[in-house]
Nucleic acid binder design. Structure first.
Lengths: 201, 201
DNA sequence: CTCCCCCTATGATCGCGATCATAGGGGGGA
DNA sequence: TCCCCCCTATGATCGCGATCATAGGGGGAG
């Protein structure tokens, strides 16, 4: 089930109740504490669920360029984080009441369930990645989990990738450089490939 | 909905089709490529979803001491990773056919959906915590999100808490000590309380 | 009761990544 | 077209947490 198929299914299921909205860079889709009133599907650009830490650091919960945002708040009384447009962003927005009604349909609910499962798998992998101490291990873990057969084409800038890896961009550039120079990794632009190590008993 | 309530509900819903199984340290619950035939709920010990890469790196996808394992593989044709017992582990195991049948019941499906949403939110908060650089910030974040009003009663040893925070136990003891001595935190046994700071403009 | 293991706790040292600084380049807007 | 901003990249230094080492204490098993 591709992302846009998911959208098409829901768009049909809510009977055209969804509308397209645009958000400027830095604009909020919703704020922490707001009562959820709509479901958002990001069509283009990039939206982030963010919450500032006590130390002033902004932490990214979810980063979506295409897909649903804050699915887990479907039956929550209030959002626990802000949703911000990282760049100019278009979103499909549907009233939550309509969305919930669509979920009453068995085939829609089935798809929704599968979607949540996949998302859960992705975020768990993300958390395991952040638990790794070394920058090199996080990089390799990312390529292994998000790529295919040790190959990956980055869908974002290295700078925002660094943020997703929980690293500063300096540390990422440096570590990538070391890995390439030591022959562990091949990199050309946004294409990355782990070079298979010769040792194997 | 507590974790064990969830188990009780499913145990009832599958009509006692679930059995308890034990796994030795290093034993596999299932293997990559296997067709999913059972759903697993970890009761005690620790199970991990892991995948070895050709490049020699072992990638951990999920780690569970209590809760469902690999929920996302519910409707997959084959597992994409191994499930290993990290230590001696007990699990509640139910045939997948029975589990799916239980999910056909509206009230069970409703609970399952909410479970997935809550898990998603929990894991996202966990990832946010791990993205914080300072040990102090992770500690405060944990108390703020897992506790109530700045108060928390630990349900685990400090050592395993450290692992959950992505810290060594030494760093946790040390940082807790500093925070208590500086008057930022009150701690007696497993009870923790953030002392409200006087500064507020 | 006694032994042993593991949790708790703290000191000393080291290394990795954060931070600060600098510079080139490319793309988009005026 | 030109300028400016941001991504990319790398050097220097510093601080925090990992690592190694040590020790007390409590609880469960025998």
């Amino acid at each position: 089930m591709e992302c846009l198929d998911l959208l098409a299914l829901f768009d049909a299921a809510v009977g055209g109740a969804g509308v397209e909205k645009s958000y400027k860079r830095g604009e909020a889709l919703f704020r922490r504490g707001d009562r959820p009133q709509s479901m958002f599907f990001i069509l283009a650009g990039e939206a982030r669920l963010v919450r500032g830490s006590p130390t002033g650091m902004e932490v990214v919960f979810q980063r979506t360029a295409q897909g649903f945002l804050a699915e887990a708040s479907l039956d929550q009384a209030a959002y626990h984080c802000d949703a911000m447009a990282a760049i100019g962003t278009r979103a499909w927005v549907v009233p939550l009441t309509k969305f919930r009604a669509a979920l009453a349909l068995p085939e829609v609910r089935e798809v929704w369930l599968r979607h949540l499962s996949n998302e859960l798998r992705r975020v768990r992998a993300h958390a395991e990645r952040l638990a790794l101490r070394a920058a090199r291990d996080r990089i390799l873990h990312f390529i292994e989990t998000e790529g295919r057969g040790g190959r990956l084409v980055l869908s974002q800038s290295k700078k925002s990738w660094a943020a997703e890896l929980g690293l500063t961009h300096e540390a990422l550039y440096r570590t990538l450089g070391v890995m390439v120079r030591s022959g562990l990794l091949e990199m050309s632009g946004t294409c990355l490939r782990i070079r298979p190590s010769p040792e194997r008993p």
